[in-house]
Design a protein around this nucleic acid. Structure first.
Lengths: 216, 216
DNA sequence: CCTGGCGGTTATAACCTCTAACGAACACAC
DNA sequence: GTGTGTTCGTTAGAGGTTATAACCGCCAGG
């Protein structure tokens, strides 16, 4: 254990209130999306008057950033919980479950960014942790070499692999991890945004097919 | 020619002003995203006072809806201009060019939706026109049958093809069109959102590889 | 005990969307 | 040419937001 000085009641209260604020924020986001989040409404909901929340968050941006951070952490925990030693199939199912569980949380991570916004460092840190788990799974899943029409991409990835952060994955594994990410995100993103509704097809069939193709 | 009664100066003026409002709106969206669009700011920029704009748009929502409509039309025009008779490669390049040309326009079509919002009918009409062009290209591009691991999906698509609106594409072509859509969107969406920045890889290599794989 | 920090309050500024009421200018009929 | 009605733009204002400032009371540690 670390030093972990006993928490003062004040600190406990403060942490608890911050958590409740975030709880309400998630509820609001679930029903009105991130742009519909209102500090004032949260405060009113909690029985306090507007500016009180500024004791706990520097402003709306900091609250949203905190929610994004939590969303990233939640995703990392989810894929971690599927492993270690999980293959891409399990990771894919875990990802889909996480996305469907709270679409707005997914959009907080992978949705339309605000042009000015820049993610804090620890968020990109978590993102690379996720990528590492993905790379582990990708390496232990499929063949180590690619088909002829994948040569060019594999060569590019072999030369530009700094995003893999020293991971020992083969170029083919790098490619699989990357395609896992982009392809599944493509389907999930369109599905959650409702672009499949009315088309009369089951996105899960598409998803599973892609997943099977990635792990063959 | 249709009857096309001569436009009155009033109508001309009105149309011109509506166009200018939309022009300013696009500028704002490009720099601050859709949630940062402000009718007041547009009015001030144009030298009029706030409520004047309500003569031209019923409100912020109608303006945004109109921009979404224009974005869809622009995308449809772009893919139409690549054809007719364009194959998936050309369509893919046209799509990427269109997306990179104005990322926020792309996000207006495929980005995070506002939970309450429902697209008007003519927008879904345009969407199905785009899908039809895609299906044409998909049918004339690859093989008519799928690999063994694509059987299940092809069967599902053969049974649920109402989204193809009576198009005569083979199940394999349906699958190619769908994967063209989801896979390329996956890459474009992540690229435009900046999720590749700092990874040190070229999204275009990934994109081209996927495109080549789709048309092989 | 008492004093400083913390949590909450109200007031206020500066935005925003949107409605209402008014005035001016224009187009059209006569 | 004159009247009349529609349209355009204005200001005023209600009600919402974020955010800051000033103030007050309470709890906690010295």
């Amino acid at each position: 254990m670390a030093v972990a000085r006993k928490e003062t009641p004040r600190e406990r209260y403060r942490a608890q209130l911050r958590a409740e604020i975030k709880e309400r924020a998630w509820e609001q986001i679930a029903t009105a999306g991130a742009p519909g989040l209102s500090l004032n409404a949260i405060a009113k909901q909690m029985g306090m008057s507007g500016p009180a929340l500024y004791r706990y968050f520097a402003g709306r941006d900091e609250l949203i950033t905190e929610l994004i951070r939590d969303a990233y952490r939640s995703l990392a925990d989810t894929v971690r919980a599927a492993g270690p030693g999980a293959d891409l199939s399990e990771l894919g199912r875990a990802l889909r479950g996480w996305a469907l569980d709270d679409p707005q949380r997914y959009f907080l991570v992978y949705g339309t960014p605000v042009p000015g916004y820049h993610a804090p460092d620890d968020v990109t840190e978590i993102a690379s942790q996720i990528m590492e788990i993905l790379l582990d799974a990708a390496q232990s899943t499929g063949p180590a070499a690619g088909a002829p029409d994948e040569e060019r991409l594999d060569a590019h990835l072999a030369e530009n692999r700094q995003w893999a952060a020293g991971h020992s994955a083969s170029p083919a594994a790098l490619r699989r991890a990357l395609l896992f990410w982009t392809r599944l995100h493509g389907i999930l993103s369109l599905e959650l945004a409702g672009h499949f509704t009315g088309m009369g097809l089951d996105p899960m069939e598409l998803y599973d097919s892609e997943l099977q193709h990635l792990t063959r």
